[in-house]
Design a protein around this nucleic acid. Structure first.
Lengths: 361, 361
DNA sequence: CTGAAAGCGCTTACAG
DNA sequence: CTGAAAGCGCTTACAG
């Protein structure tokens, strides 16, 4: 019952208000409105609607009916203020122009949304400083969870994550060593190093001997593939630093074409090129067409990630298929568990990879 | 001064607390802490920090110094609850796998972030129902602004936007007719119809007479390009329904290849194909290589949007360059104005397009 | 130009 | 299993 501080002027209003549920200035339907309609206290409504157990089943039903009837919609801001936790999940990825991360994101969103979480996307542009700054901003919003790409971050970023105590899952990578602190990390990915090694072994098995590695962006995962390549070639006694072609510019079709042209000018001649990402490799394949260089006869070409178009090229591109959608989904599921306070069966999930042999090698 | 309900046991604590600023249970530095440190009231701190005028310059400085010293970070949830408005901007786009929208988004984020707004991305998958559902969820969060793709939406979506009274800017399109309600819309784009017509005129000018239109996804903007193409061909007396190849599946390289193969089987032969998006056209170019069909000798090929790789193809792809980054930025700027309560000089901004002639036509 | 009061709409302990 | 009280951290009128 509203206690109108009744001057005579306000009496009518007070009576009207007393008839229906009490209306706020904002006109919003609130928890109290639902409580009044259902004949229970607001806190019971809160519990019933959130599916908290320890509420009588009959009451839950009555409350839900009232909520539906009034068209009640919870206010996330009020919820966040009271509970010190929002329904946002912050996701940090390097670049949206790399189709890889679009697929990851799609899977993450598809998993998180039905559970009632909004995704807040931060694009770091492969820049540790920008990542830290983005994280700082996102943490202000008290996200319920965090998904970040990779395991290599600035000390500031690591500290922010730790201090925030927000559950966090890492994507696309696995810790190399099994140190105690590595074991504490939650992550879903595969061994980039192993994948690089496997593709290199494939090229060796095809009889290639002068296998170049062409890398762009030079982010941590690219460098791990490089390491895998290097280890295999060294073991075969076929490694030489002159086989390493590294360019810090972002990966793109055009850059792939340029690198291909450069590498093909090298003597003694290269007989295979492992590009660290499919867009580079596709660019190389297009350049080969322009330059009338036969692939794989003159040179074998392989890419990484099996992005759109890999199978459309002439010849179709040999590459490594990475389970990015599965990684996104598994990471989101693991995060969901962590946010519920549960402990995932496995803190570190290896989803593997697959060398896909096509015509280019 | 904290009024400790002092049992003897808590006395020490109370004294300690009285020395410093009063600490909340959460340990957060609040507006009140800053106020106390600066020797002013919380509301003055609020005003000073938000840069609201009508605060003495000297005070502003003192407040800012105190805030910095204490490491004060405003709580967005509290802010949103009190002001009924968050610092989120919701952005609705059809698909992240279309590179077009990645560029738009990048520009939007780059413009909005420095102004203190977080972007909430919703991917509609070109589905009106999903768009409406996403909008409903995002509106729960009381965004300060809204950016949506295109002008065609379900009645429910339109109503939600109108009822919410949240400032809204539309992307990528312009209203066709100048009805009063069209004039009330805020939008930044270009005429899809005109762009379709211009590209068709280009093909006609090259002497092509049997110009097919190959469209996928069949979203509103694709259909507008189709209309532009149709109008030009009809005027030239060269239109026939059999020239229209429409497929509702999502646009992709692979689909472009398939469509190309189908279209090339048609009699009498087609001498040019206008693909509604570059990925289709690129797929067609790749298929032409496989099938050894000469482009542009046997058939001219044109795309739309000038996406990555268009200039890398053999032959390079003729297409329409669309100013998507500029559109994203201009839309974000316009929204910024609207959110400040200002009226943009122009409610509808036409950023144009450009036919880029390359080797494929 | 500055402040005291009230309130935004929810949830967290604490009782019973 | 249910509820009354207090509080989350800010801003919106309303005064002066």
């Amino acid at each position: 019952m509203p206690r109108a501080k009744s001057s005579t002027a306000t009496t009518t209003t007070a009576v009207t208000a007393a008839q229906g549920s009490r209306r706020r200035a904002t006109g919003r339907v609130t928890l109290s409105d639902v409580a009044q309609a259902a004949g229970v206290s607001p806190i019971t409504v809160s519990r019933a609607l959130r599916g908290e157990r320890a509420v009588d089943a009959a009451l839950v039903e009555r409350v839900q009916a009232a909520a539906t009837k009034l068209g009640y919609v919870p206010d996330p801001a009020a919820r966040a203020l009271a509970s010190q936790r929002s329904s946002h999940v912050a996701v940090l990825i390097p670049m949206l122009s790399n189709a890889l991360f679009v697929d990851v994101l799609e899977a993450v969103q598809r998993t998180l949304r039905p559970a009632g979480f909004q995704t807040l996307i931060g694009v770091t542009h492969y820049d540790e400083g920008e990542e830290e700054q983005l994280l700082r901003e996102q943490l202000m919003h008290r996200p319920a969870g965090l998904i970040v790409t990779g395991l290599d971050h600035s000390p500031g970023t690591r500290q922010l994550v730790a201090q925030s105590r927000v559950p966090c899952v890492h994507l696309m990578d696995l810790p190399a060593a099994s140190t105690p602190q590595a074991a504490a990390l939650h992550c879903v990915g595969f061994s980039q190093r192993e994948a690089g090694a496997a593709l290199t072994r494939h090229l060796l098995a095809q009889g290639r001997r002068r296998i170049a590695f062409a890398g762009a962006q030079l982010d941590p995962r690219t460098l791990q593939r490089l390491e895998g390549w290097r280890a295999v070639l060294q073991q075969a006694g076929l490694h030489s630093p002159t086989l390493e072609w590294l360019n810090p510019a972002p990966s793109s079709l055009a850059l792939g074409g340029q690198m291909f042209e450069q590498i093909m000018g090298q003597h003694p001649p290269i007989d295979a090129i492992f590009f660290c990402n499919d867009d580079l490799a596709q660019g190389a394949l297009l350049a080969a067409l322009r330059l009338r260089i036969k692939v794989p006869q003159r040179v074998a070409i392989a890419g990484f990630n099996d992005l759109t178009g890999a199978d459309q090229m002439s010849p179709p591109l040999t590459t490594v298929r990475t389970p990015r959608a599965q990684i996104g989904e598994a990471a989101a599921r693991m995060l969901l568990q962590l946010m519920r306070g549960e402990t995932p069966a496995l803190a570190q999930v290896d989803l593997g990879f697959e060398v896909v042999r096509r015509g280019s090698s």
